[in-house]
């Protein structure tokens, strides 16, 4: 059994502690002569210490926007127009740039996709790693270097001494991904955001990277938001799973409940898509997909135009993200009823 799938100890359910709390977060992109486009709409999530929350969504759903907005750095020209991102008793959205600098990369860090493009091409990998320790942990050059080397060993890069001097273009995709993970874990952050961190990797390398990430996160008892397009990963890697569609959480539940008893029509479609079963997929697509209802997503359900169960009320009233059974929330007027 892949080690990362091995009975992941569920996070302490009763613990009231919260590692990160996002409330009513809203990110908008200005549109020339028009209403701004809402990329993240009044989104709430909370993640417990030690928990890995999976966030599944397709391109354009707002995954990356959410990840970056948590660090108060939404992709340009997006703007955070409302909400709270509470971490360690403070609202990150109200901090100054200088205060944020001290949190980013130290208390909250991010693992990015396509790491070869994200690393500075002119600076050796070891120097990039060491500068994190110098900046955030006030280490001198020498001990920062030692830490960097230790970190490269921890992410199991072969021949770390030599890799310290390597430039990003000399690394394979998998190796660069390990470096980015090493950078993210350097300061033992309490919260890690992984944004599609394994998307460009081959499956055998992906398996190694996931295992490594899980191991290190558990060791440091950090919490993690794991963003991905691949619903399969979340079934084996995450404690809870959320589905995001057009900037809104559609369903969020503990892993078992999510996969054994999914309830939202969009979740059903995503699962049917994996199976390549045309009948099931058709059952979860509206009969005439080409006729798209023009729904105002501000007042109606964002999924209306793709939903086979949509009725009048879906266009006029946005469903709440309501708890169906313990911990299993669904945003739908007509979710699948089970039991």
């Amino acid at each position: 059994m892949p080690a990362f799938a091995q009975s992941i100890g569920l996070p302490p359910q009763n613990s009231a502690a919260v590692a990160l709390l996002v409330e009513r977060l809203r990110v908008e992109f200005p549109v020339l002569r028009g209403k701004p486009k809402v990329a993240i709409r009044d989104l709430d999530i909370s993640i417990r210490p030690g928990e890995i929350l999976g966030l599944v969504g397709e391109s354009g759903a707002g995954k990356t926007t959410l990840a970056r907005a948590i660090l108060n750095l939404p992709p340009a020209p997006g703007r955070i127009t409302a909400g709270v991102v509470q971490f360690d008793g403070v609202d990150l959205l109200r901090l100054s740039e200088g205060e944020l600098q001290r949190i980013r990369g130290r208390d909250i860090s991010m693992v990015v996709p396509n790491p070869r493009g994200e690393l500075n091409p002119l600076v050796p990998v070891g120097v990039q790693l060491a500068s994190i320790a110098q900046v955030h942990l006030d280490k001198d050059r020498h001990s920062a270097r030692a830490m960097a080397l230790e970190m490269l060993q921890a992410v199991q890069i072969p021949d770390p001494e030599r890799r310290m001097r390597a430039y990003p273009h000399e690394l394979s995709g998998g190796m660069a991904q390990r470096v980015v993970i090493a950078i993210a874990l350097m300061c033992s952050p309490r919260f890690i955001i992984s944004d599609d961190a394994t998307s460009g990797l081959d499956v055998t390398v992906q398996a190694q990277i996931l295992e490594l990430l899980r191991h290190l996160v558990r060791k440091q008892s950090s919490a993690m938001l794991f963003i991905t397009r691949d619903i399969g990963i979340t079934a084996h890697f995450c404690d809870r799973v959320a589905v995001i569609y057009r900037g809104e959480i559609m369903e969020i539940a503990p892993r078992e409940s999510f996969f054994l008893a999914p309830r939202h029509p969009y979740t059903m479609l995503l699962l049917a898509a994996f199976l390549h079963n045309p009948q099931l997929r058709r059952a979860w697509t509206p009969p005439d997909a080409s006729v798209r209802a023009n729904v105002d997503t501000e007042i109606g359900c964002a999924y209306t135009d793709r939903c086979p169960r949509a009725r009048k009320i879906c266009q006029t009233t946005k469903p709440l993200l309501a708890e169906r059974i313990s911990g299993h929330f669904v945003r739908c007027h007509f979710p699948l009823e089970r039991e």
Binding site: P2, A5, V205, Q206, G232, I233, H236
Partner: peptide, 24 residues
């Protein structure tokens, strides 16, 4: 090894194998 790395969207199903590939 390749198959064991496939992740099916169901927590109870994995194409596990005792064979684990190292490296790249």
């Amino acid at each position: 090894g390749l198959l064991s790395a496939v992740l099916l969207p169901h927590p109870h199903f994995s194409l596990e194998s005792s064979i684990r590939l190292e490296g790249e």
